[in-house]
């Protein structure tokens, strides 16, 4: 009996998007990163093409994350005082993108000024030639002052700026558009909200094709399946031709996995849990690899071991 042809025929595909700009594109990056473009379910090459493997962005903070659990702290303590050195380390670890978080501008932290944030961004851009993802501190009023300045300082570099939400999108949209950057739209675990934020940005004239969806992230054991199913639904909607969610998707398993008790508790919790130094990175890598299957296009990671593991997993998944 003949095996029936079970191949799906999709009418749409995920938007292809390039982040970063080389000198001949008006920027100073050594290379650019292109994500998206998939015309089928992740890693099912008989179903559709996946022209670009998922990209790895590595976290860089603009102030030392002194509360990081030991395995993470050990990996970065020598560079975490200096975002430039840290970004350099990220590149050495094989990052495709630098994920720069301007946490120090948070009013409850150092409350650094927009000028200081601009300095950090300039320094990182100068020292490392990878494309940049830049996040504000998450406090809308402050980000509205910081991000336009940062966007201006990074003009021409085609960065990815985060994050526009349903309540605060105007300033970031306008800044990204004015200075030629891409935009992250954030909608916590809800495909309809994701569409709505994208509509709001688009209604302002921001191209839907310059957006990256960020449905937030949950760690393994902490509701990861919700995010997984949102990733699946976004991908299926994109493949069915829904332009409102046809964007590549970013997830943040690095930050989320290390919030899990299982990733940071010492061996006093339970002997059979094993060594924290192994367990923490494993938790991060396992979370990331799952989300990879769901349809993540950009993964933000932290630990060097996890970065290497996820890189290897991607290699194995895309090679046939």
């Amino acid at each position: 009996m003949a095996v029936p042809d079970a191949k799906e025929k999709w009418s749409g595909r995920v938007n292809e998007m390039t982040i970063g700009a080389t000198p001949d594109q008006g920027g100073t990056r050594g290379r650019t990163v292109t994500v998206g473009g998939a015309s089928g379910i992740p890693f099912l090459d008989f179903d559709g093409q996946m022209p670009h493997p998922p990209a790895i962005a590595v976290d860089v903070f603009d102030r030392p994350p002194i509360h990081w659990p030991p395995p993470l702290a050990e990996a970065y303590r020598d560079v975490w005082e200096d975002p430039v050195a840290w970004a350099q380390r990220a590149k050495d670890l094989g990052a495709d993108l630098i994920n720069l978080r301007l946490i120090s501008t948070h009013p409850d932290e150092q409350d650094r000024s927009p000028e200081q944030a601009v300095e950090t961004v300039r320094a990182v851009l100068q020292a490392v030639d990878l494309p940049l993802i830049i996040w504000g501190c998450g406090v809308a009023e402050k980000d509205q002052r910081v991000m336009p300045r940062v966007a201006e300082a990074a003009q021409g570099e085609n960065c990815l700026l985060g994050a526009a939400t349903e309540t605060d999108y105007r300033t970031l949209c306008a800044a990204a558009q004015a200075y030629g950057h891409k935009l992250i739209t954030l909608a916590p675990c809800d495909i309809n909200k994701q569409k709505q934020v994208n509509i709001l940005a688009s209604d302002m004239g921001f191209p839907l094709t310059d957006i990256v969806n960020y449905p937030t992230t949950a760690s393994l054991g902490y509701g990861m399946e919700y995010i997984y199913s949102i990733l699946e639904r976004i991908r299926l909607a994109a493949l069915s031709g829904d332009k409102l969610v046809a964007q590549p998707v970013l997830v943040d398993p690095g930050y989320e996995a290390w919030r899990a008790k299982e990733a940071k508790a010492g061996s006093e919790m339970a002997a059979q849990w094993g060594e924290l130094a192994v367990r923490g990175p494993a938790w991060e890598a396992a979370t990331a690899c799952n989300l990879l299957q769901g349809g993540a296009d950009i993964l933000v990671l932290c630990h060097p071991v996890a970065i290497a593991a996820v890189r290897e997993a991607i290699r194995l998944l895309v090679s046939t």
């Binding site: 809800d190 309809n192 909200k193 569409k195 709505q196 509509i199 409102l244």
Partner: peptide
């Protein structure tokens, strides 16, 4: 699902 889609003016699906 229908509720969140409808929490928009006039609706997410215009």
């Amino acid at each position: 699902e229908k509720f969140t889609s409808a929490c928009f003016l006039p609706h997410t699906d215009v």
